[in-house]
């Protein structure tokens, strides 16, 4: 069990708020589409803070401009991977940005065991730190 104030992984824009409803998610999708950003759905069972590449639930939806269609993709992903972390990302292709512009979690495993901190004592008082995701002690697909 995680001991931070929320007891959950707090990556993303809205992890300190109550879980977003479909209506709230749709409003965020509309905001992104209004900015001309492409939306994408990604999932993982390894939420390590430096696990950059979550699996893509299909490529970013560059040509889908219908918020209901995008919400449907999110819900398809939730149905397929009900016990995974799922995030919605927005991408801007504007020169000078060309990078993600939004990222928020829309699905989580029922139990989030979190991470251990492994301290390797090295020279003198120096310590090398490893953040270890408890879930990854099990093979992919069998973690939650």
């Amino acid at each position: 069990m995680m001991t931070n104030p929320n007891g959950i992984v707090t990556q993303g824009q809205f992890s300190f708020l109550p879980p977003l409803t479909d209506v709230q998610i749709t409003a965020q999708i509309k905001y992104a589409l209004g900015k001309g950003w492409a939306l994408s759905v990604e999932y993982t069972d390894d939420p390590h803070p430096r696990n950059t590449y979550w699996e893509m639930f299909g490529a970013p939806m560059f040509d889908l401009k219908d918020p209901a269609g995008i919400l449907m993709e999110i819900n398809n992903c939730r149905k397929t991977f009900p016990n995974y972390y799922i995030r919605v990302m927005a991408f801007s292709s504007v020169r000078g940005v060309e990078s993600p512009t939004m990222c928020y979690i829309v699905n989580r495993p029922k139990n989030e065991p979190g991470f251990g901190l492994v301290r390797q004592e090295t020279n003198g008082r120096n310590i090398r730190y490893t953040i270890h995701s408890y879930a990854t002690d099990k093979p992919e697909g069998e973690r939650y």
């Binding site: 707090t10 901190l117 120096n126």
Partner: peptide, 16 residues
């Protein structure tokens, strides 16, 4: 040394 222990411990506690 102390600050980096704090940073890493907090990172493990939050996943961020």
């Amino acid at each position: 040394l102390y600050c980096m222990d704090a940073v890493n411990k907090a990172s493990a506690a939050t996943g961020e």
